[in-house]
Write a protein that binds this DNA or RNA. Structure first.
Lengths: 236, 236
DNA sequence: AAGTGGTCTAGACCACGTC
DNA sequence: ACGTGGTCTAGACCACTTG
């Protein structure tokens, strides 16, 4: 929340800080064109590469907008690129100082239900493992996890019981992936989830749905429900 | 969702791709130590700086973990660093192809209520502007916005009516900030929000709460409520 | 003490897209 | 066409932290 300590001059951090200062000071307002890298390098008395790194990072953060030949401008719309650190549930809970707990509710092998085939774009009849489990922070239910694992891609999952650790912990160490997507939404807990999370009927839940692929092939899909007092925060 | 096109050899992109390939191929598994930069530079036949950039980016993305002297390892827990692009509501809606609409519901100047003072850590009696507004995608209510602006920091806000454009659009172009935080959660819509979003009583809403500061001084706080069919997605 | 990453420099060439 | 950013190189010195 506080501006980062300014560093020695001539560093890319110092350049970043100075550019940010000028933007906040409105020397450069939204949409304004900044001088080219070479010029700024002279101003700041450093190498062009240093200015480049500073500006590149500011661009990644959504503060600047760059195009070849057209130059660098202050973002007219500061698209805040927030970072979400999605950790293992265990780590997330332990980071709060609470004790992590896990309980397997159900595990079954079956063919992927129609809605899942459609959602993941896999052939009907694809064998999967379905797991329902609870994660606790201390004694309090923290997350209800519903997971589906594609056995065609991760057949080793058939040997896992998931009684002591959750599917995700096993997956991250056992199955490589190349792409992931997450969706967040709000919903009313269904009766099972409400019961497991010890919520009243009609209580809202925060829902995260994750899917991962290895080279376009779906590996696993998870629906994670959190009680309404859960807060997901951005870092940075 | 698909792996990025591999580039010419000797580029940092090629190095990134090759490192990722070896990780997915389990040449290097979770927790494993990678060779030092100098060595990889030789292997790949490129400069150390090129390898450095590749590894630095992979570290930013949460794939690798680096410490001086200790070397570089594959993350044992791939903390998925998801990126959320938080755009202006207008842009977000227009990106879906729908027409953006805006309607001011209420605007009043008053002293900050106690809960807000506590939440933002500002003195009681701080003058603020409170705005309630609706954002539409086509004819459908998309977001209910409740906003509070600190008049001590942004006194110019007193001259704004917010009848044609929302507070956020004015803020981004008029008031610089240095820090921002966002929290997401699920809640039951209160009667006002439910009415405005045309939801049934007891319907869940997806809630985003944003606060921004300029050098540790709170500028504005917003509570944004979305209907339950809203999905927030990660990019990348 | 020594090895590893972190960063800066000076120079070069390239790629893109605007003018 | 040509100015702007994008990237690579080779070398150097520094900062951290572990053995």
């Amino acid at each position: 929340m506080t501006t980062q300590q300014s560093s020695k001059i001539g560093t890319y951090r110092a350049v970043k800080a100075e550019i940010l200062r000028r933007i906040r000071n409105r020397d450069w307002g939204p949409g304004d064109l900044l001088p080219p890298e070479v010029e700024l390098a002279e101003d700041f008395g450093c190498a062009r590469a240093t200015v480049n790194r500073a500006m590149r990072e500011l661009t990644d953060e959504g503060v600047l907008h760059r195009r070849r030949r057209a130059g660098t401008r202050v973002s007219a719309e500061p698209v805040r690129r927030a970072r979400l650190d999605i950790a293992l549930t265990r780590s997330e809970i332990e980071a709060t100082g609470k004790t992590y707990g896990y309980k397997l509710l159900e595990r079954k092998e079956e063919n992927a239900p129609a809605w899942l085939c459609k959602s993941l774009d896999i052939a009907s009849g694809t064998p999967i493992i379905h797991v329902s489990a609870l994660h606790f922070a201390g004694n309090k239910p923290w997350q209800h996890e519903l997971r589906w694992i594609n056995l065609n891609v991760a057949p080793e999952a058939a040997n896992e019981t998931f009684t002591k650790t959750g599917p995700n912990e096993w997956l991250v160490s056992a199955v490589p992936f190349s792409d992931a997507a997450v969706e967040f939404s709000a919903a009313i807990a269904n009766s099972d989830t409400a019961h497991q999370l010890k919520l009243d009927k009609g209580a809202p839940v925060f829902v995260a749905e994750r899917t991962t692929w290895l080279h376009s092939t779906p590996i696993t899909h998870a629906r994670l429900s959190y009680p309404p007092d859960y807060r997901m925060r951005t870092t940075l």
